[in-house]
Amino acid sequence: MTQPRVLILRAPGTNCDVETAHAFELAGGAAERWHINRVLEEPRLLGDFQILCIAGGFSYGDDIAAGRILGNQIQHHLAETLATFREAGKLIIGICNGFQVLLKTNLLAAADAHGPTATLTLNDSGHFEARWVRLAVEPGKCIFLQGIQEMELPVAHGEGKFVTRDETTFHRLANNGQFVIRYSPIADCGLRIADSNQHSPLPTPHSPFAAISPTVPYPANPNGAQSDLAGICDESGRVLGLMPHPERFVDWTQHPRWTREPARPACDGLRVFQNAVQYFA
């Protein structure tokens, strides 16, 4: 198989589907944008695709909670189909809202007898944050991240703070090698930037387990995520969820400092899509 087929799933309120399809096409995939209603009508058609991408946006307005309603729909109507999809060696990626949706299914961090194990909640700043971040990558088994050590990508979300239910759950996921992308400090440009004291008027939240508290200050860690986590994968390495938007850095002119820095041979976000497409090459 040379050109994998990519299904970009959209729901009412999804709004990153067009550029995500473009990114997969640039990487060599054949992307189609499908409404969730069409998938719900004929779930078996998913079998014709090799990659499933849940694109960013505000599915169902993020009413109740980010990703909640689409997550519930998938959980109630497509759980088996997606489990089969993954077992067949295929890839699933959820970006931003897609990550929020995936966390509400059992595909990334499965619920146990005590309920859900992890969530993405309101940013510490209390509001939506759109800014570029630096990311440290530990790919492990994750197909999408092979060969990548660091990335610069934009985030744009209000509910991106990754939190696990308790310390035991945290260490279980960590030991499984599921913690693959973390926010990293802003590069030292010789400037007095990223001085967290200036930027963080809010009191530091009380955390019962300091060991997994974030170490990267706001705004480099834009939401206060535990252990600075920006993305996690499942145990197989074939399902990835991340808050930053790789589809927004597939052309050099999308970089915030493209007018002052030398161009990179491959844009950071495009490499994620290329990894996915080339996996089927």
Binding site: V18, G56, F128, A130, I186, C189, R248, R257
Partner: peptide, 24 residues
């Protein structure tokens, strides 16, 4: 204000509202 507005969705951003070495 600017950081609360998504200025890059749709993937076509070339010159952003904030520019420079520290994007500000």
């Amino acid at each position: 204000i600017i950081h609360q507005y998504d200025h890059e969705v749709q993937g076509g951003s070339v010159v952003k509202p904030l520019v420079g070495i520290a994007n500000d």
